[in-house]
Amino acid sequence: MMLLPCPWCGPRTATEFRFVGEARPRPDPATATPEQWRHYLYVHANPCGWSTETWYHRAGCRRYLSVERHTLTHEIRAVRDAATGTTAEAAP
């Protein structure tokens, strides 16, 4: 039930969003070994602490957001549009 500050829509309840997952770089499909690729698919760091995640504002602006969230306290210190990098301060 935490609030997530969407750069476009303002603070919204987390149920408006879909949690996509931890942001993880996609290995180069031409050179990735099975180990590297499955690490990308299945292994999550799941830290107790700060985590950079992707959230999708499904019931709002339908933008994918990059969110820095503390997994223990649910504190959120940075949210930006995943494509444009727009933050709440810069959004119109």
């Binding site: 499904r58 994918y64 995943a82």
Partner: peptide, 13 residues
């Protein structure tokens, strides 16, 4: 639709 937007927004903006 969400899948298409995901790739467009996060991988190939």
């Amino acid at each position: 639709w969400e899948w298409v937007e995901n790739w467009l927004q996060t991988a190939h903006p």
